[in-house]
Design a protein around this nucleic acid. Structure first.
Lengths: 195, 195
DNA sequence: CTACGCGATGGCACTAAGTCCCATCGCGGC
DNA sequence: GCCGCGATGGGACTTAGTGCCATCGCGTAG
């Protein structure tokens, strides 16, 4: 028995990604994922609330980092500056030495609406955390929500580009670039006629 | 038998909302919804892909209206002006004579992450349609995506406020107000220091 | 009026996700 | 060596969701 081996969560995550790559998401049962990780269905659901969640463990850690980075930003930093800091802070979640698995993960998510759905939920939670963190800094509600959406858009775009097979650039660089372009476009949008 | 009675979809939707209100979402089985509508489980799944979908039938029609409104906007209209037109166009989806059911619907969705998840998916699809419609007008990719996010944010905020129990204002008014405030905030955001 | 066909429904079997509860195991402290 | 705690195993159970075929209602051709 493989009982009591450490890192059950990581093993399940790895086994899941392997099987999704080999047989596809739908054709992979939770029992099979657990078996490959040397565990059982019961244990799987003790680590992940459902089958989808096994692909999004990192997003929860990310949300914490995001919130912390905004709170640690200097008091006079603008909302967009806070977002920049947050995007730099989540560099650890996108380490280059794990870059090989990213394209597969994205492909699986893109191919299954229920996984895309879960990704959207994670990002909505992230947006809620950013909004709250900005509000704590005295930013008004509407601005906080708008800035949070811009941050999520920058994050999503950057994460997508980073996860490309032939990408070799660090996440922070891509994110900074995207955020800066969004800032420019936001100015143009607001300046245009609205009616 | 109630076979061959018209509007099976509407009956299922109504029955579902009733039961969700009475017993809660989790405690209501698909079989029960179908039974109250005078139908069976088989027929339910022929009308809605899953249990969640029964609450989001209107969102699909909305997406079409949204896209059509942007395409019909005058060629020289700015992106934000297009969004304004789209928000006005979906007035039909928020008729005052059906306002009574809105608070319940929102409460049920808010209480269940899986329903919130589905709502996010619908809005993401809406955002994709807006993005594509703006691109067709010659708007560059980044601006289109940013504007679409702003539109979705305006829509979500307005829909939430409209669905309040004591609200009596038409949707278009609320939406226009929200969008205008977002435009102001976007300008301020872009003007601030970024770095 | 009958025969035929089409589309919507009913019904049933089946798979797998997810829940619940309890037994079991391993490790560390007393 | 005993004991308790936390993690795992295992099995019973409910229900979402799929697939297939029989059935029904209605319109239409002849």
């Amino acid at each position: 028995m493989a009982r009591w081996q450490p890192n059950a969560g990581e093993r399940l995550e790895r086994a899941a990604l392997e099987l999704f790559g080999e047989r596809g998401y739908d054709a992979t049962a939770v029992t099979e994922i657990a078996a490959r990780a040397g565990l059982t269905k019961s244990t799987f659901f003790r680590h992940y609330a459902d089958k989808r969640e096994v692909l999004f463990g990192g997003d929860d850690r990310l949300a914490e980092q995001f919130g912390a980075a905004i709170r640690q930003a200097p008091p006079d930093a603008s909302p967009l500056a806070c977002l920049g800091a947050a995007l730099r802070a989540c560099e650890a979640t996108f380490p280059m030495d794990r870059h090989d698995l990213a394209p597969l993960r994205y492909a699986v998510i893109a191919a299954h609406p229920e996984l895309h759905e879960r990704q959207l939920l994670k990002r909505a939670r992230l947006a809620a955390i950013v909004t709250e963190a900005l509000r704590e800094r005295g930013v008004d509600d509407t601005t906080a929500r708008l800035a949070a959406q811009m941050g999520i858009l920058a994050f999503s775009t950057a994460a997508s580009r980073w996860s490309t097979v032939d990408n070799r650039r660090p996440f922070a660089d891509i994110a900074a670039e995207v955020l800066d372009e969004l800032r420019t476009r936001a100015t143009e949008l607001g300046a245009g006629t609205a009616g």
